[in-house]
C-alpha cells in the first residue's frame, strides 16, 4: 500500500508544554485508521497540524505522490489539496438548509469569482441528492440544518466531507453523543468511505473502534505508543498501563 500521508518527526510546544513530541507515522491510500489515546495525548493537536490550523515547531507532513510538505500551507490550501476534517462538535452551517450545506462542500472551484457566477449543474444536483441519501437525510434537504438532531448534524457534516471528495478524511470523535443505532450507521458510513479514500478516526470509545475493524494507533503524551490491530494494542502492557488501566 502506497503512503498517502507521512507525519515525520513533528513536535509542537504550547507555552512550554510539549503537546506533540517527535510524532511519526504513515497513513496509506484507502486505509481506515483509528487513533486512540487518553486526554491530552495530542490527538486533536495532530489533526490541527495536518489541517494547517497549528504550525509545528519542527518536522514535516508529507502529502501525496508529489510529496508536498503541508507545513506552512494555510487551511484552505490544505483542504483544496484533498484533506477533509470533521470536528468533534458537529459544525454545520446551522442557518442554512441541508442542501446549501452540501452544495457548499461539493468539489468545485473555490475562488470567489467562480463561486459568484456558479450555477448548479444537473450532475451537482444529483450528487447532492445522492449524498443526502447516503447520510440518511434525503427527506431533509430543504430543512434548516440547525433544526436537525445532534446525530443528523454529525451525518450532515460527514456528508459535507464526502462531498469535498477528499483523499484523506480526518474525523474527530464521530460517535460522541450518538445513540446506539446512530453509532452503527456512522460506522457503516465511515467504512464505506474508507473503501475509496483514507479515513483517520480519532475516538475515545473502544466499542466504536472495535466495530471499525481497522488498524489502531495509540498516542500517549504526543507520540506513538503502539500500533496494530485493536487486540494487539490492547494486550500491550504499556497501553494497558497508560490508557486502559485507568
Amino acid at each position: 500500500m502506497s503512503t498517502l500521508l507521512e507525519v515525520n518527526g513533528i513536535s509542537v510546544t504550547f507555552d512550554g508544554y510539549k503537546a506533540i513530541r517527535n510524532l511519526s507515522f504513515n497513513i496509506g491510500e484507502a486505509e481506515l485508521r483509528a487513533i486512540i489515546g487518553p486526554n491530552g495525548a495530542g490527538k486533536t493537536t495532530f489533526m490541527d497540524i495536518v489541517t494547517g490550523k497549528t504550525k509545528p515547531d519542527e518536522g514535516k507532513v508529507i502529502w501525496g505522490e508529489m510529496s508536498r510538505n503541508l507545513v506552512g500551507m494555510n487551511e484552505a490550501r490544505i483542504a483544496q489539496a484533498g484533506i477533509g476534517r470533521k470536528f468533534q462538535k458537529p459544525t454545520v452551517f446551522e442557518d442554512q438548509s441541508v442542501r446549501e450545506n452540501l452544495t457548499m462542500a461539493l468539489q468545485n472551484k473555490r475562488g470567489w469569482s467562480s463561486v459568484l457566477f456558479w450555477k448548479p449543474s444537473k450532475a451537482d444536483q444529483n450528487r447532492v441528492v445522492e449524498l443526502a441519501a447516503e447520510i440518511g437525510l434525503a427527506d431533509e434537504l430543504e430543512r434548516t440544518s440547525g433544526e436537525l438532531s445532534h446525530g443528523q448534524k454529525q451525518w450532515l457534516e460527514i456528508g459535507m466531507l464526502l462531498a469535498q471528495e477528499p483523499r484523506l478524511l480526518l474525523v474527530d470523535e464521530p460517535a460522541a453523543g450518538m445513540t446506539l443505532a446512530e453509532r452503527e450507521h456512522t460506522t457503516d458510513i465511515l467504512k464505506e468511505a474508507a473503501k475509496t479514500r483514507a479515513v483517520v478516526v480519532v475516538e475515545h470509545d473502544m466499542e466504536f473502534v472495535r466495530r471499525l475493524e481497522c488498524k489502531v494507533t495509540v498516542l500517549h503524551e504526543g507520540s506513538v505508543l503502539a500500533e496494530g490491530s485493536l487486540d494487539h494494542v490492547t494486550s500491550n502492557p504499556e497501553v494497558i498501563e497508560v490508557y486502559l488501566g485507568r
Binding site: 489541517t51 490550523k53 494555510n74 487551511e75 484552505a76 483542504a79 483544496q80 477533509g84 476534517r85 470536528f87 459544525t91 454545520v92 452551517f93 457548499m104 462542500a105 473555490r110 475562488g111 470567489w112 463561486v115 459535507m160 469535498q164
Partner: peptide, 10 residues
Amino acid sequence: ARVRFLGYSV
C-alpha cells in the same frame, strides 16, 4: 474556521 476547512479562502 469551518469555511476554511472546506477549502475556501476566507
